[in-house]
Amino acid sequence: MFNRIVTATDMITTADAPVLSAARMARQQGARLYLLHVMESASTDNRRLVRHFETGAEMIADADYEHCIRQALEKTYKDDLSGIPHEVRVTAGFPWEEILRWAKEVDTDLIVLGPHSTRAEEKGVVRIAGRAGSTVENVVTRESCPVMVVNRPADKGQLLFQRVLVAVDFSRSCECAVGLAAKLARHYRSRLFAFHMIPVPPIPKYTRRNYAADAAHAKKRLESFYEANLENADHQYLIRAGALPHLEILNCAAEKNIDLIIMGSHTKEKAGKWYPGSAVERVGYRADCPVVVVTDPGVLAHWDSTITADDGDSKDRLIHVFIET
């Protein structure tokens, strides 16, 4: 399914969850792994002015120092990378820029990242609850291939993706997410759950009868939007009502013992919207399983063309409540 996987870490002598997960996936799928480390710069004027990873002393990074880091990374992940075709790259620059550059260079199928720097406290980075971190944000908002966010190392069983949840509304990006989810489900023979949340209006007049009508209407719309993409995939629609999408998604994932969550990000649908979307960030920040974020129809380019050119206003992509009225 995935042939070329790019992952990145800011750690050198300690194993990092995204790298471990990416390595396990590469081993299971026979993929080639690309491991990137971007040296931490001590200067905005000279990106090669860095702090030595062992002593903390400022120095100018040269080829010998880069080689030293590569050797340290190979040692840290010796067992995890053994037998896996892989390449380790060490460079200076901004992490998100270097990740995007290498991903484009190798024409990757998947990028695997952590939601926050694991060295945030040491580096003086302020963690914000619910935020995925600037590197993930910048990669997601600019990349068309799937981006997997990993909080903790995924085990081998989880990476078989036997139970997949795709969170959908009626947006373009979610249509692309369903296309990828269906492709994964058919490949891994997974059970696929298409989750949709109806936003409950913040007034006491929304009754159970209102919800039942809205849920029935939403299911019909979901089938009209996605049934063609889900053909030959073992799937089920899950409709919930709530006010906070990320909590409903996480609760549903826990309830169904989900191995993988797939989400569409609205980041490319409106000019000037630079962030991945609050639900995407909050789920990626908290999920116990890997979360794949999709932003673009190009995500399916490596496999097929099930997502066609944008159909403009031909579909009603709004979410409706109070259908009875």
Rank of each mutant, 00 (worst) to 15 (best):
P201F: 03
P202F: 08
I203W: 15
I203Q: 14
P204T: 08
P204A: 05
K205N: 15
K205S: 15
Y206K: 04
Y206V: 03
Y206L: 04
T207Y: 10
R209S: 15
R209K: 14
N210M: 11
N210I: 04
Y211R: 09
Y211T: 08
Y211A: 08
A212G: 10
A212E: 11
A212H: 11
A213N: 14
A215C: 14
A215Q: 11
A215T: 09
A216W: 10
A216E: 12
H217G: 10
H217N: 12
H217C: 10
A218R: 11
A218F: 15
K219C: 11
K220I: 10
K220H: 11
R221G: 06
L222A: 06
L222C: 07
L222Y: 04
E223N: 09
E223H: 10
S224L: 07
S224T: 12
S224D: 13
F225V: 03
E227G: 03
E227P: 04
E231H: 13
E231K: 15
N232K: 14
N232F: 14
D234P: 09
D234Q: 12
H235Q: 02
H235C: 05
Q236A: 08
Q236S: 13
Q236P: 08
Y237K: 01
Y237P: 01
Y237W: 02
Y237S: 00
L238T: 02
R240I: 12
R240K: 11
R240P: 12
G242K: 00
G242P: 03
G242L: 01
A243L: 13
L244Y: 10
L244M: 10
L244A: 10
P245H: 00
L247F: 11
E248R: 04
E248G: 06
E248I: 07
N251Y: 12
N251W: 08
N251G: 15
N251V: 11
C252P: 11
C252M: 13
A253S: 09
A254M: 09
A254L: 07
K256F: 07
K256G: 02
N257G: 11
I258Q: 05
I258M: 09
D259E: 04
L260C: 08
L260D: 05
I262D: 05
I262A: 08
M263D: 05
G264D: 01
S265R: 00
S265C: 07
S265I: 07
H266A: 06
T267R: 00
K270A: 06
K270P: 07
K270L: 04
K270S: 08
A271V: 12
G272I: 02
K273S: 14
W274S: 12
W274G: 13
Y275D: 06
Y275E: 06
Y275K: 11
P276V: 01
P276H: 00
G277P: 04
S278V: 05
S278T: 06
A279V: 09
V280P: 01
V280C: 08
V280F: 02
